[in-house]
Every structure is written in C-alpha cells, then in structure tokens.
C-alpha cells in the first residue's frame, strides 16, 4: 500500500520551483529585451536586424558575414544580439540582383528591412497583336499616361493632382497605402501620409542616437527626394505590391528604383527599348514600345 506524496516532499518541491521562477524570470526578461553580456561581462542592450526575404534561397550577409539563407518556409531572418552600430546588409540570390543597404541598429530596437529583389533577367512575354488581351492592354495604355491621367483610371494606383511647388503648374500625384509620390520636373518626390511612428526610417528626420530605445519627437511627413533624373521621366508608378519602390520610364528604358535614398539606393533595369512606356495593371507591368506590347515577368 503506497501513500500519497508526503507534505514535506511537496513543500520542498514547491519551494524549489518558486526558486527556479525567481531566478529564471529576470534572466528571461533581460534576454528577451535584448540584453547580453559583452566580452568584459558588462550587461548591455543590443539591437537586431529583421530581413524579410520573399524569395527562397536568398542569403543574408551582415558585414560580409553570412547570417542565414532563407528557405521555402522560413522567409523571415532575424539577426539579433547586434551592438548598436551601422551595418551593411547584403542579400544575394542567384536569380536576382544583389540588394544592399546600410542600416543603423539602435539599442533595444530591430531594424526591419524588406529587400527589393528584382530578377537579373526580366523576361518580356510578348502579347500578340490582334488578340483580345492586346486590345485590352492598348486600352489601358490609351488612358492618359501617369503624368496626365485622372482619378478612377483603370490602373492600380490612385492618381490625383497637386499644386506645383516649382515650374510645373499642376503635378500628378500617385498614392499607395500611406505613401504619396509625385514628379516635379525630372525629380521624383515621396511623402509619408501615415502616423509618424509607423513611418519607415528614411522618411523621418532622425538624429541618430544609438542610446535611444524608442523613436520620439520625429518628423516623418516632410517630402523626400527619391530620384533626380538627368533625362525626362515619361511615366512613373509604384512597383507591383510595394509602396517603397517606383518604376520609371526614361528615354531608352524602364527602370525600378527604391524610395529609400540612403546608401545604397538600389536601381535596376527592367526593359530596354526605343522609347518604351509602361502601365501597372492588375499588379502586372505591361510595356509598350511602338506596336510591341509585352508583360514583364518579375517573379522569375
């Protein structure tokens, strides 16, 4: 005949767990908040970099050191325990152009970055003339260009007019989610329309203070200059699914450029032609160069 667990044992066992809890909690909380011991055993708060890589097999390097490679399921890479400092992030993928950015890691904060990956070879799939699709796309192109088009067009991006600040009397503005982009002369500007605390860093005037845990007293609503062209910009629109990258049609080609103008601002060719134009329609990029019409495959 066995008896239930003795009270003495239970009390000792309970107190042991209380002790584990008391000791474990500060360790867990400090660890979770980003505290680490440095080489001299001083406790210091660290930061991190979060990289979202939509394409599998993308390698993430921080300061020339490979940190991780994304897979089909793990598209999020978090590099923690980084000392507050400036880091060069590089993403590479054999099918896409390398993407690099210098980011600042601050105490207790994670810098989230979403690499703008553009295929090295953008295949233009021609749409044959005299097909219904061809006629539909021509209709889209027949609408005024981005620079002149009106609200409620067939295009994905909402377009409005704004008062000029310089030489052009009426400027066209495109808006996606919380971002507004417009062209003034041959310079593209962008502005954050949302709450300051939700703004990507490059929209904000931040005094870089690595000791700041949270951003405060920032101004993130002033326009930023995204791109200044030496040749005329004929058409511009948001890159499909993104509000941080713009497609522009210049004289001899179509290019994609990210809004983040900090070093390095990544700039990629999408299509070369005589005098090509483009439209973003149903999250596809259609190009037209003379009678030639094609859809760009940006997913590789």
């Amino acid at each position: 005949m066995q008896h239930p667990t003795s009270y003495k044992f239970r009390l000792a066992y309970f107190l042991f767990f209380v002790l584990v809890f008391i000791v474990g909690i500060p360790i867990l909380i400090f660890y979770s908040a980003g505290y680490k011991f440095d080489e001299t055993f001083n406790l210091s708060i660290r930061g991190g970099i979060y990289v979202y890589t939509p394409e599998p097999n993308t390698s993430v390097f921080i300061g020339n050191e490979l940190k991780n490679t994304s897979g089909f399921f793990n598209k999020e890479i978090l590099v923690g325990s980084l000392k507050p400092d400036q880091y060069t992030v590089l993403t590479t993928n054999e099918d896409f152009w390398p993407w690099t950015k210098i980011v600042i890691v601050r105490r207790g904060e994670v810098e989230a970055i979403f690499p703008f990956l553009v295929p090295k070879v953008v295949v233009a799939e021609e749409i044959k003339a005299n097909t219904s699709e061809y006629r539909d796309i021509l209709e889209v192109f027949a609408e005024k260009s981005t620079l002149l088009s009106a609200v409620n067009s067939k295009k994905d991006t909402q377009t409005t007019s704004r008062v000029a600040t310089s030489s052009t009397p009426v400027l066209e503005t495109i808006t996606r989610r919380q971002v507004e982009v417009w062209l003034d002369g041959s310079t593209l500007f962008a502005r954050w329309l949302g709450r300051d605390e939700a703004a990507p860093n490059y929209y904000c005037h931040i005094v870089i203070d690595p000791n700041n845990i949270l951003r405060e007293d920032e101004e993130c609503s002033d326009p930023i200059q995204v791109f200044k062209s030496s040749v005329p910009i004929h058409t511009f629109d948001f890159y499909p699914y993104r509000d941080d990258a713009i497609i522009v049609a210049l004289d001899n080609g179509i290019y994609a450029i990210e809004s983040d103008f900090r070093s390095y601002q990544n700039f990629y060719p999408l299509f070369r032609g005589e005098k090509p134009d483009f439209r973003v329609y149903k999250n596809q990029v259609y190009v037209k160069d003379g009678a030639y019409v094609a859809v760009l495959n940006l997913n590789n």
Binding site: L28, S32, G34, G80, G108, R215
Partner: peptide, 15 residues
C-alpha cells in the same frame, strides 16, 4: 509600431 520595432517584440513570439 513603436513597440513593434523593439527587440522585445521580435523575441516575444520566439521565447
């Protein structure tokens, strides 16, 4: 968003 940029917010689901 202010909380969502902290290391804690990234570590919370992992921990």
């Amino acid at each position: 968003p202010a909380f969502n940029t902290t290391v804690l917010s990234y570590n919370l689901p992992v921990v």
